[in-house]
Design a protein around this nucleic acid. Structure first.
Length: 327
DNA sequence: CGGCTTTGACCGGCGC
DNA sequence: GCGCCGGTCAAAGCCG
């Protein structure tokens, strides 16, 4: 019991189960559907009451300046001006391991989050090394000034918040890595940059809402996802991914991101925090520019990643590990 | 016509 | 063994 709450964030735990993430800002807690709640302060994070967060896959957040992004126990930290390119290649957000030649901080950090990810090819044939084509679900935190404060890799959150108890549970079949997260949205099927084909729909016991089953349309990709509405709160969509993509996102990434933002875009209330506080504007550090685009017949404003320095009112801070650029 | 959704049938695991 | 349930299949239909 206490063991689970006090899980060392630097420790990797095996977690093949399916789980769903929730967040209660007021109580400074995260929830996992299959675990007891975890108090963030146990991990050294102090939540201030007026932060916002949202979950999803953000293909546009695919570039990280590793010099400015401390890899903290499987977390990303994006305090503003923190994206760039290295080796003329984009670094997928899910690829959190630092390239050796850029490793500037604690070397023990570099391998933590890699365990969940596909291996990189070494590019021995002279071609550039292959970047793992992998997009992970993320949890983004914002302050009231719309600045992006923190990005959690949800797969790693799974590791942080899970400690296997005793013997292994018998499994029906080899299960792929699976992660679920909740999003407050009127749209059931949220854009995540990939194309999906629906192959089934089932009524769910004790729920008035059906569950939909999708497969990635890439024939070589075995990733599946399930989408259903929470029976407790019909405004919340529960999306469960199973497996890892073996390819890049399809189409024009900005469009994918834009469509995703369409699903999430809303306003951050000045009022007290909410459970699943979903009503956010564009991510902090992502400033809107006025490139018109059309997605699903709707005219949209295209968000553009724009470097911004953080203000001094960071709302989610790790007590002893504030990056220099946050001071 | 290709790509996608819909939907009833089917299958396998699990509990009783 | 039986029934329930979650997950998948595949034929039919829809749509651009």
């Amino acid at each position: 019991m206490e063991d689970e709450k006090k899980a060392d964030p630097g420790t990797q735990f095996s977690d093949d189960s399916s789980w769903t993430l929730g967040c209660d800002a007021g109580n400074n807690q995260f929830f996992r559907s299959d675990r007891e709640s975890c108090i963030l302060s146990d991990f050294g994070w102090n939540l201030q009451p007026d932060f916002g967060w949202k979950t999803g896959c953000f293909p546009e957040l695919d570039q990280i300046d590793f010099d400015k992004v401390p890899d903290l126990a499987g977390c990303f930290q994006l305090p503003g001006n923190c994206y760039s390119q290295y080796s003329n290649q984009t670094v997928p957000m899910g690829s959190v391991d630092k390239p050796n030649h850029l490793s500037t901080s604690n070397p023990s950090d570099s391998s933590r989050s890699r365990d969940n990810l596909p291996e990189k090819s070494t590019g021995s044939d002279g071609k550039p090394p292959e970047i793992p084509p992998f997009v992970v679900p993320l949890c983004l935190f914002f302050n009231a000034s719309h600045q992006l404060l923190l990005v959690f890799n949800l797969h790693d959150m799974g590791n942080m918040f899970c400690r296997s108890k005793g013997g292994k549970k018998k499994q029906k079949r080899p299960q792929q890595q699976r992660v679920a997260f909740m999003t407050k949205s009127e749209i059931d099927h949220l854009e995540d940059g990939y194309r999906w084909r629906k192959y089934g729909q089932k009524a769910v016991k004790n729920s008035p809402f059906p569950r939909s089953y999708y497969r990635c349309t890439n024939s070589k990709c075995t990733v599946k996802k399930r989408v259903e509405r929470s029976s407790q709160d019909p405004t919340i969509v529960i999306t469960t991914y199973e497996g890892q993509h073996c390819h890049y996102t399809v189409g024009f990434p900005r469009v994918a991101f834009l469509a995703h933002e369409t699903a999430f875009a809303a306003r951050l209330p000045a009022s007290a925090p909410q459970l699943y506080s979903q009503e956010l504007q564009f991510p902090l550090g992502i400033r809107q520019s006025h490139h018109a685009s059309h997605v699903s017949g709707q005219s949209q404003v295209l968000p553009e990643l724009t470097p911004q320095l953080p203000n001094h009112e960071g709302l989610l801070v790790k007590s002893s590990q504030l990056p220099e650029c946050m001071h």
